Simulated scan of single mutants.
Amino acid sequence: MADNVYKLRDKNSESEKITINLGYVDLGRIDLLVQEGFYSNRSDFIRTAIRNQLASEGEAVKQSIIKQTLELGLRDYSKADLEAVKAAGEKLEIKVLGLARIAPDVTPELALATIESITVLGALQASAELKSTLAERIR
């Protein structure tokens, strides 16, 4: 199943919207940098700042990924993947840093039979019914 792990690209369609609170002075300083042409808009500044901070903490992040045995990027779980896990009499411990997607045709019964736990640092895409069914297994 490792053949369906993909490195995420920086694309708006593959991003998650977040909300942050900033003080007025910090917001004004960002607006000043945008006005002066250093950044195209507030979001551009914030994305750049986040990437720079993540780069400066890169080694710590890398070590934590290894220590926690996280898969990095996009991880898809299809109905066929889970049926194969069930046929083998195994259960998955899903651990992803990025985006984990469980196919819409996966039934709650199949998910319960094959998924022991889910840890996602980033985002989990699954049906509302599946998320509700697996709520106690999502960490």
Rank of each mutant, 00 (worst) to 15 (best):
51 R>H: 10
2 A>R: 10
32 L>I: 05
54 L>V: 06
98 G>A: 09
65 I>P: 00
1 M>N: 05
65 I>A: 01
85 V>N: 04
70 L>A: 01
104 P>R: 09
118 I>A: 01
102 I>L: 11
76 D>N: 14
120 V>R: 05
83 E>T: 00
136 E>Y: 05
132 S>N: 14
128 A>D: 10
139 R>N: 13
71 E>W: 06
10 D>R: 04
23 G>S: 13
134 L>N: 03
138 I>H: 08
134 L>I: 02
16 E>Q: 14
26 D>A: 08
39 Y>W: 07
9 R>S: 13
90 E>C: 00
85 V>I: 15
112 L>N: 15
85 V>F: 04
64 S>E: 15
113 A>F: 06
67 K>G: 05
86 K>L: 14
6 Y>E: 12
47 R>N: 14
107 T>C: 11
4 N>S: 12
112 L>Y: 11
96 V>E: 08
29 R>M: 14
104 P>E: 15
112 L>H: 10
14 E>C: 08
118 I>W: 02
79 K>C: 13
83 E>Y: 05
117 S>T: 15
118 I>T: 04
38 F>T: 03
94 I>V: 15
112 L>A: 08
81 D>P: 12
70 L>C: 00
26 D>C: 04
7 K>Y: 04
20 I>H: 05
52 N>D: 15
40 S>H: 12
109 E>V: 06
31 D>T: 01
123 A>Y: 10
60 A>Q: 07
6 Y>F: 12
125 Q>P: 02
115 I>C: 03
64 S>C: 07
107 T>D: 12
77 Y>C: 01
138 I>Y: 09
44 D>Y: 03
90 E>M: 03
